[in-house]
Computed example of a mutant assay.
Amino acid sequence: MRSVQPVTAPAPLVPTTLETAAIVGRLTPPRRAISGTGLRVFPLAVSARWFGSTISDTASGEILDAYRALGGNIVDTADSYADGRSEELIGDWMRRRGNRDEMVVATKVGKSTAHPGLSAAAITAAVHASLRRLGTDRVELLYLHLDDESVPFEETLLAVDELIRSGEVRTFGMSDHTGNRLVAARIACALLGVAPMTALQNQYSLMRREFEGDLAQVAAQQGLAVMPRFPLADGFLTGAYRTRADVAASPMRDYLGAHLGRRGRRVLAALERVAAQQDAPLAAIALAWLLTKPGVVAPVVAVGSADQLFDVMTAPDIRLTRHQLAELERASA
């Protein structure tokens, strides 16, 4: 008599981020305006900081696919990221998907080894090199990646204005400049009659709130679109790094260690309470808090894989109560 072999039930299929997006969908992806430019962007930008270095070429494409499927339309990179490889991967992806006109590309110049600094020659050469790597004829948003005080603002601003007039750059912003330097740049733009800056990218998160001083005041006065960098404090606000052992395993360990104190524990505890009330991930709550801040348009979020995007991309849909906002404010003070 033939023995009957037991039937093994197939393992349940776990939907991918893209499949989930197709099922759930977004009827009207929320967009925020970069004032004075006509650009409207999803309230979270995807960072290409690690594309081509710690994130593989394949994984980079998967992240961009998932981000686009979930309604995203702004990608943030720089000519210095992976020595330009980050820009190449973005350009390859846009060409394969045929979606260049649907994307807002933000890149930065000033820190690359090939074209360092913000002289007119360096800026022009750097932007042209970025355009070649991106495989496009323009970038929507160009950041000055550093404050190069060795070059007069007039020279830098005239070079940027020439790129805007030629159509190679749509608008520009600054990164890591002080409030005084932002004021000086705005005055120089007015005196020269050149295109004004429209965006600002600085560190800003529940763990880094220095922005809320003079910089926030200047940004508000000038109507700048604030695009916070490291909005999850190098990953600390995801809740994944709570001990020295956790931090030691991260490529961001040199930065994460600074958060492992009493204040960090207090912030994570507050995030956990609010996350439980909202039935949302800690990272989404941290981003939702940031999106309530005046002038904030699109925090720049880095993820390590496509599946990590689903959690953070829910942040714009979260509505924190006044009590929850106050709790997060107190914990991070």
Rank of each mutant, 00 (worst) to 15 (best):
V4G: 11
A11M: 15
L13C: 13
T17W: 06
A22P: 07
V24K: 12
R26D: 11
L27E: 14
V41S: 03
V41K: 03
F42Q: 01
P43N: 11
V46Q: 13
R49C: 10
G61N: 11
L64M: 15
R68I: 06
R68T: 13
G72L: 06
V75N: 00
G84I: 03
R85Y: 01
S86G: 04
S86W: 00
S86T: 01
D92P: 05
W93N: 07
R97T: 14
G98A: 06
N99C: 14
D101A: 14
V109T: 14
V109Q: 03
S112D: 05
S112C: 12
A114T: 13
S119V: 09
A129M: 06
L131S: 03
R133M: 07
L142T: 04
E149A: 13
V151Q: 06
F153D: 12
E154C: 01
L157P: 05
L157M: 09
V160G: 07
I164Q: 09
R170W: 12
G173S: 09
S175E: 08
D176M: 11
T178M: 04
N180Y: 11
R181M: 11
L182T: 01
R186Y: 12
A188I: 03
A195G: 11
P196I: 06
T198D: 06
T198L: 02
A199E: 04
Q203G: 11
Y204D: 00
Y204M: 05
L206P: 02
R208A: 13
R208D: 13
E212I: 03
G213C: 05
D214M: 05
L215C: 04
A216Q: 10
V218K: 02
A220G: 12
Q222V: 09
Q222R: 07
G223S: 07
L224Y: 03
A225Q: 03
A225R: 06
V226L: 02
P228W: 08
P228I: 02
R229A: 12
F236T: 01
T238A: 04
R242Q: 14
T243C: 10
R244S: 14
Y255M: 11
G257T: 13
R266H: 12
L268K: 04
A270I: 09
V274D: 07
P281M: 08
I285C: 08
I285Y: 07
A286Q: 04
W289R: 09
W289A: 07
P294E: 01
G295S: 02
V297Y: 06
A298C: 01
V300R: 01
A302G: 14
V303W: 00
V303R: 00
G304L: 04
D311C: 05
M313W: 00
R322V: 08
R322F: 09
E327N: 12
A333D: 15
A333C: 13
